[in-house]
């Protein structure tokens, strides 16, 4: 393992993961008020109506695909009788649909963000940085997959990227595997690590407030006045001379 490999595939990923987890914990504690989707629907509805569901459902499907493709070992799918060929066809067809939806949705959203005045002026530097990293990650992923298949040499990432990714969680990173992967995959993975590091400090945190609990909670929420979370800092001390009016 060279020093470069060590840096790219061990040090950086762990730094990014620590930032990802620690950042979220810290942000949740420090900045619940800023934890929001920051919707711009008030400013513009027409493009958003198409682009936002397209992007979001596309990326949800893509995330689902990544879970199946990377977290589930190849041996598991083969043991239930799914051959590499069958897996590849399914993954490629579903992945292509999801990928195209995501990219088209994202392109429309970025176009909207740039051209609609109020939306653009509500875009912070933080948002712009996030858009660059997110778009780069998504485009790299899609391009790598498409190019591999167009040239007739699809790379089986389940032999390289996936075992490496899982090995991160056993704390024994398999850098040899990822080093075998084509450059496109490597850059996609590195971008993804960067994206994870950036994640907690951007509006992307809204992913973790997906309101699943809504499906089960009662419609009307009652809360006592006393359940208000205490303001941090000192409780004001009452002075007798200021009581009453």
């Amino acid at each position: 393992m060279t020093g470069r490999e060590q840096l790219l595939w061990v040090v950086l990923p762990y730094l990014c993961l620590v930032t990802f987890i620690g950042g979220h914990v810290w942000r949740y504690r420090y900045d619940k008020f800023g934890w929001t989707t920051r919707s711009s629907q008030m400013y513009e509805r027409r493009i958003l109506r198409i682009a936002s569901p397209l992007f979001h459902f596309g990326i949800l499907a893509a995330i689902g695909g990544h879970v199946v493709g990377i977290l589930v070992p190849k041996s598991w799918t083969e043991s239930v009788g799914v051959s590499e060929g069958a897996y590849h066809v399914v993954a490629l067809s579903l992945g292509a649909v999801a990928g195209v939806c995501t990219v088209v949705g994202m392109a429309l959203l970025i176009y909207r963000r740039r051209t609609v005045g109020p939306v653009f002026s509500a875009t912070t530097k933080n948002d712009k940085l996030m858009y660059v990293v997110l778009a780069a990650t998504i485009v790299l992923g899609l391009v790598t997959t498409v190019l591999g298949n167009v040239t007739g040499h699809p790379h089986d990432y389940r032999e390289t990227v996936a075992p490496y990714f899982r090995s991160i969680f056993w704390f024994s990173p398999d850098t040899a595997r990822i080093s075998e992967a084509p450059l496109g995959f490597q850059v996609h993975v590195e971008m993804a690590w960067l994206l994870f590091a950036l994640w907690p400090f951007t509006r992307l945190v809204h992913v973790f407030s997906a309101p699943i609990g809504y499906l089960t909670r009662p419609y009307i929420v009652y809360r006592s006045r006393e359940q208000r979370p205490a303001r941090r800092g000192w409780e004001p001390v009452s002075r007798p001379d200021q009581r009453g009016r």
Binding site: D31, F33, G34, T36, T124, N126, F201, R203
Partner: peptide, 9 residues
């Protein structure tokens, strides 16, 4: 706050 105009308490 550091994450845009809406962050912080």
């Amino acid at each position: 706050g550091p994450f845009g105009e809406t962050s912080g308490g």
